[in-house]
Simulated assay, not measured.
Amino acid sequence: MTGNGRRGRRILAAAVVAAALAGVLSGCGGPDDVSTATGSTQPAATQPSATAPVAANPEGTNAPLPEGAAVAPSPTGEPAPEQCSNPTASLRPFPDGAPESPALDRIRARGRLVVGLDTGSNLFSFRDPITGSIEGFDADIAREVARDLLGDPNLAEFRILSSADRIPALQDRLVDVVVNTVTVNCERREQVDFSTVYFEAQQRILVAQGSGIHGVADLAGRRVCTVAGSTSLTHLQRAEPDAIVLTVPSWSDCLVVLQQGQVDAVSSDDSLLAGLASQDPYLQIVGDSLSPEPYGIGINKYDPDLVRLVNASLERMRQDGTWSRIYDRWLGILGPSPGPPVPHYQD
């Protein structure tokens, strides 16, 4: 197909969806407020959108879209940003425990490790509906870091962040670390620092059974959900620029709009998609990988001692079997444990 033909089809399809999702193109409100969660059943606070877009379901159910939903602008065709040498290389762990340092002493004086995550990433971080506590693979990894720094895994205090708020929260020191399925890449490394990789995922596609979608090529002219502030949007638009992308605040929102027929597919890391699929037996993950997604623990760029402490904790988890036990507890749905990722260091 010619470039003009693809562009014309994309414009026409976008116009149809824009009409069906009336009001969404006007944008969304402010990001979710950061709220604390220490096992309480009180939900995270959110800030209402000034526009509060509500749109009819394209399939005719008149179900409202999630607050903050927006149709992503069409890709510009700009080349991918220049890559750095090895974004996953981190600082070596302390060889003999954790010394005194401003970053570590600040956390010790407070008596708790403030951890940013969300509660919409089933299997990785979610609120248990019975106990009200935050559970999942990421939550348990964070508790182990608190154990090594403060002597007690229960001294991890969780603050709820949207995907778009993760980097700003680190830069503004609203949290000490972010353990929230954050993909390590060169662009983010310019803004914050990262631990070694603690989990490796692959971006794929989630659809309803019988959808006729088998891979990324089938997404041309289709509506696809992803989360604002995630790397999934960029990778998806590069792989299939004719896809019409709806961004929402959380992955649980993507599950809702897929089930309601407001989108045809969801694209994200297979680890997150597995968490969504576990909640609906009529959903399936399809297609080859769009991109590797190495997860690292985000840390403020000016806290190298905290980076080394976190890496020491991750190394301990690799060596004593803790990582594999956490994997088996939460991620068995992905298959047998592949073992923890091999760390790479820059010094």
Rank of each mutant, 00 (worst) to 15 (best):
E59Y: 03
A156M: 04
G5W: 10
R147Y: 12
G30L: 11
P338T: 07
D152T: 11
G30N: 09
G60H: 02
M1H: 10
R204M: 13
S35Q: 03
A14W: 07
S291I: 08
T322D: 02
P341T: 14
N4L: 11
P249T: 12
S211N: 09
T131N: 06
A72D: 03
P336L: 10
A220M: 05
L150A: 13
T196M: 00
S162Q: 14
M1P: 05
I299D: 13
A243E: 04
M317R: 06
L283I: 11
A13F: 01
R143G: 05
R308P: 02
W323A: 01
Q237A: 09
G23T: 09
T76A: 02
K301L: 13
A103S: 15
F124Q: 07
V182W: 00
D269W: 07
G97Q: 05
P31F: 03
P87R: 14
I167T: 14
F158T: 03
S268I: 04
T231L: 08
D253A: 06
N180M: 06
G210M: 04
Q47R: 15
N300H: 15
F158P: 00
G3V: 15
Q262M: 12
R7Q: 11
Y302N: 14
A277C: 05
G3R: 15
V257Y: 04
R92T: 14
P43H: 11
E100Q: 13
T36Y: 05
G97K: 03
P153D: 13
L155Y: 07
P341K: 12
A19T: 14
G39S: 02
D32T: 14
T247A: 07
L170D: 01
V114N: 02
A70K: 12
S195K: 04
R7S: 14
I299V: 15
E144M: 09
V286N: 02
P81H: 12
I167P: 06
R112Y: 11
D253E: 03
D172T: 12
V224T: 11
G296N: 04
V177M: 05
A69D: 01
A19P: 06
G215I: 00
N300E: 13
P48W: 01
G5N: 11
A109T: 12
G275L: 02
D148A: 13
L123C: 05
S267N: 10
Q346P: 00
E78L: 15
D305R: 02
W251P: 01
A89F: 01
